[in-house]
Design a protein around this nucleic acid. Structure first.
Lengths: 213, 213, 213, 213
DNA sequence: CATGAATGAGCATTCATTCAT
DNA sequence: GATGAATGAATGCTCATTCAT
């Protein structure tokens, strides 16, 4: 599963480059700029500069700046839900489900850092728009998945019952996803390592336990 | 720390309302709109609409849109550091310091919700600019305060030693401040109550502890 | 029924020029350019040039280029129907009605030459658009007025019965309105004089009559 | 009168379909779109869509959008003048000449509806351009032909002498050509039938004549 | 002949800002 | 203090045109 620019696995005999690939490249470029400068502050010219072309040329590939944003977010969420659904359908216990969701989340942050950052910063403004209804939809599914996992855990006495479960939900959700704002792929910790430490903090806290005995 | 165009010291002859108050009102209005729509997406006209005046009229009170932003952030950070410094100078132990900082943070979120939200969303873009150097400055102080508190705690064996302390720092920092994105003053939980629950989660985790005995 | 932005209930004492007047001036300028170059070929810059301002400044007065077009056409049609309705409600016989309608039409061409020319050239493309539904509406009323006048005339034996009445309608309609393409106010013929000659041609033909006797 | 890029005299070696035919097809397509949407509002892409090809491909056949327009108008006017010249050289009396010109005109409208509509809408803007000088040229010849016919008729006492002859010219000219805006080939009236009725109206008027006796 | 991709000039529109009143 | 009107730079987008393949 290639993450960055030119996978170019098998060079086609005479054709130069298949269209969908170019499209992906451009979207990745755009996502990077959106993530760094913010969607509104990103001009189409800046994206084109990064892609080595003129602003108008982008419109051969995309309908509008907004449609680029939509495609970036949509394809990120599609992949995210592939991962999440696999976890949710695996029949795990609540604690294992939570561990798997967190780990999966850090993997997505690793793969789609830019898209996640965009999502974090812009989704609140975008969700009300018709065109971005899929964001609101995803948010609902997301909340349901996490909330029900937490509730199952409380019922099974593996998660604390003395906490407001909605507060806990926000705590876990934000804690994980905000990591996209500082995470850089190829840094000193792998996503799995970060997930492990985060899970340890979220589950057991950062305070030293009094020795049982 | 120069701010610009401070309301003239000499009171205007016939005016009834003192200028600084109007200024505050306008800044609060602006902060609200910035927080809701994002700084870039907020037009001066929108702010003026909310304030019941025309766009041009704002320029009697402020030099520019950016100077409004600056003043909002600067006065928020001034207050924040008043609170933080009091805590840091109180000579508390690491755990108590952390508890006090978190509680103080939620109080600031309660008082300056809009400014905090703006800070969260925009500070990364703003910090590199000369004009907003005070943001970077604040971030450094902030990191130092938290990091040293955590390190003191690890040394004193009240915080776990098996965690990457920088990761822990980010974890705690994000966990607290992101709350500004959903917090609404006057909701069902007071800032102190939220602080208590967050501290409980951060310190002891959300998992049920096996009974020591 | 106020049409534009600022209600301005009570005129301020010292204001230099009432807004609606400037608006009218700009619309007249725009109409002139639209008429001469065609709506599509007219850039907002050209209009602004003619008005002695920059392109962006027009947007203080109008929402869009299209809204200028709309206002031009709408105010022309409003005036046209004031005149037409007066004629149609006067209870005249069919020949006198036709004479009055033709005369009124030439007067409108004299007063709104530019708007008429625009109407002629653009209405077919515009009418289907929601925003310009009033054009289609006007066309229906227009056809009904003329057609029924012609039919009354045929029934009363003052207009020939051997002609296809719809063809006659188009003949008269086009004949009159196309005059806007060459008419210049202040030329050697007054609108009334042109109307008289046109009516003479339309009613009696251009061929010499054999003397009855 | 230079036309450009005439289909190569030497037939291409292996091509099966003769080039000029494809060229004609494409011009007819273009004319249809120009007529319906207006020249300026017609994009090259729309023409290409109608022709089942991509926009760039049209440039194999034509130098530019403008050259398509030129060729459409030029070939229409060439045919028109074939017909008109035949009539004018036939040595007919003024009334018969006028009848023949009108009839010929409706035949041209029938054959070149699109080109006539384009001509009507665009010629005023185009004529001043160097490239479209042939339009102005044609207009001069046109005016001369009609005006002299009318003047001959007045002198011969078959047309009324009490009318401004230039006004009469415009009346007849417009009356005939505007028909292109509503005429659809294959409708309920043949061009000859429309010509007959129009001539009847133009010559004898639409009013009922008092019986001579 | 036709396609896919790009160019570059131009367009309508937005918006922070200015300033005379 | 506030308004009305304007500026000017920038923005997203369109479109005729080019050209290697």
């Amino acid at each position: 599963m290639p993450t960055n620019k030119k996978p170019q696995v098998t060079a086609p005999k005479k054709s130069t480059a298949p269209a969908p690939q170019r499209r992906r490249e451009l979207l990745d470029t755009a996502a990077e700029v959106f993530a760094e400068q913010g969607y509104n502050a990103t001009t189409v010219r800046k994206i084109a500069d990064h892609a080595g072309m003129l602003a108008g040329s982008l419109y051969y590939h995309f309908d509008s700046k907004e449609s680029m944003l939509e495609e970036i977010l949509r394809s990120f969420l599609d992949e995210l839900w592939d991962g999440y659904d696999a976890v949710l359908d695996a029949g795990l216990g609540p604690r294992e489900t939570l561990e798997a969701l967190v780990t999966e989340s850090f993997r997505e942050i690793d793969r789609h850092r830019a898209a996640v950052a965009i999502y974090q910063k812009e989704s609140k403004q975008l969700a009300p728009q018709e065109r971005f209804a899929f964001l609101a939809e995803s948010q609902r599914k997301f909340q349901k998945a996490w909330l029900s996992t937490l509730e199952r855990g409380v019922a099974a006495r593996v998660f604390r019952a003395d906490l407001d479960v909605r507060l806990t939900y926000r705590f876990v959700r934000d804690t994980v996803w905000v990591a996209a704002s500082w995470y850089r792929p190829g840094g000193q910790h792998s996503p799995e390592e970060i997930a492990r430490q985060y899970l340890s903090m979220v589950l057991d806290g950062i305070a030293v336990r009094e020795e049982p005995l």
